[in-house]
Write a protein that binds this DNA or RNA. Structure first.
Lengths: 218, 218
DNA sequence: TATTTTTGAAAGTAATACTATCATCACTAA
DNA sequence: TTAGTGATGATAGTATTACTTTCAAAAATA
């Protein structure tokens, strides 16, 4: 994780880990705009200034959580593809991991991955939809997303070296892996996903796998 | 336009039109979070409560502006496809209109379409990425987006009645028509668009036309 | 001219996003 | 053992935001 994401590394101290744990719970519950450091401090029985010693502001905390998620996903994709040689298979597995339902990873006891996944779906676009996006990008706050996009675009390039838009297609894939689930939950007329009795994760995987492979097939 | 979008119709009065005109200018310049009704009132030499008589809050004003944009686009697509019989051609034209650079439409003198387009690219997702999305949706605040999605999905269905995900594909298309431009501007490693000397609108159109037609081709 | 509607001016409120100051406590180094 | 350092928490304060209330004046309408 880029050290620009925090003032003091929250994984290193008891208080830091508590901040991560409870902020995930509270952002999931309240939504990002109603979540405040004051409420967080009250809930963990600490003080507002203590939290500001870890994160410059709540936007940075959100960026940290989303970056954590993308790092975690990249690690899972690396793990799942490690003994796979064929790029078609690697790409397929990457799409599987992207679209899978997310459950508790026992390696990280202070992170509730299921709640974090809901935050990613509902809030992650807010990390970059700001006027300071260019400054934040220069500081390397979005490396997690960009690195995973690059990796999967690499598989696309191996499947079809002639395809002209691997990064654009993969950023589309990564966005839609989450946005289609949001639509299915809240604006269901925008998607077929969730309208049959097939489970939403499987259907989303089928939709995206089909779209990606047909688009790059030659 | 759904009358739930406003308290008093802003198109009907001098002050209302001024609110639309100057809010577009200010949201474009400041970004949505730094834009306030107080600043708007100062700039148009009116008073804060006067603006609250037109829009419940600044979120509703943003939703109104984005809805206006989708209505305008649907009108332009209807106009451009009116004498076209072949659904392939209709779909192609819809993608063209979606991805076109947007310039002043003299029919609407108080709306700066180029500035509004930048707002759509940078801020439109914030209309629904809120905890009240379900209430807002019930009130019909997102009908503009949904109606256009339905129309274009209808073309998709005519091109290939067997394709399983027309709405999901079209919502993907509509989102990416804007998000790829944002990436090209601010996170260029996520897309090929803007990396050659081909103009971004043309390249985005090619990327999306290719993706959509390959995906639904049978 | 009378009346209703729309607007603007002024002030107020609760909450937010911080910041500053300071005492305390745990840990470490001499 | 003691002195010093760094992390924490308690308290309070500031500027700004997102509204709301009240009221008088101006404009539109009947």
């Amino acid at each position: 994780m880029s050290s620009n994401l925090y003032l003091r590394d929250p994984q290193e101290t008891e208080l830091g880990r508590k901040i991560l744990e409870v902020s995930i719970e509270m952002i999931d519950e309240l939504g990002f705009e109603k979540f405040t450091f004051r409420k967080l401090a009250a809930k963990i029985e600490s003080a507002e200034p203590s939290i500001y010693r870890y994160f410059e502001n709540k936007h940075r905390l959100l960026v940290y959580l989303i970056a954590w998620y993308w790092n975690w996903l990249e690690y899972r994709i690396d793990f799942s593809t490690q003994n796979i040689a064929k790029p078609e298979k690697q790409l397929k597995i990457a799409i599987d991991v992207l679209t899978q339902k997310k459950e508790k990873d026992l390696l990280f006891p202070s992170i509730d991955e299921a709640a974090l996944y809901r935050i990613v779906i509902a809030e992650s676009d807010k990390t970059y939809l700001t006027k300071q996006v260019d400054d934040d990008n220069k500081e390397g706050l979005f490396l997690g997303f960009k690195s995973l996009c690059k990796k999967i675009a690499g598989y696309v390039r191996l499947v079809n070296p002639k395809y002209e838009f691997p990064h654009a297609l993969v950023s589309t894939l990564m966005q839609m892996a989450h946005q289609q689930l949001f639509f299915s939950d809240h604006l269901p007329s925008l998607t077929e996903i969730g309208t049959t009795n097939e489970n939403v994760y499987d259907m989303n995987r089928r939709f995206l796998t089909d779209m990606v492979f047909k688009t790059i097939d030659n």
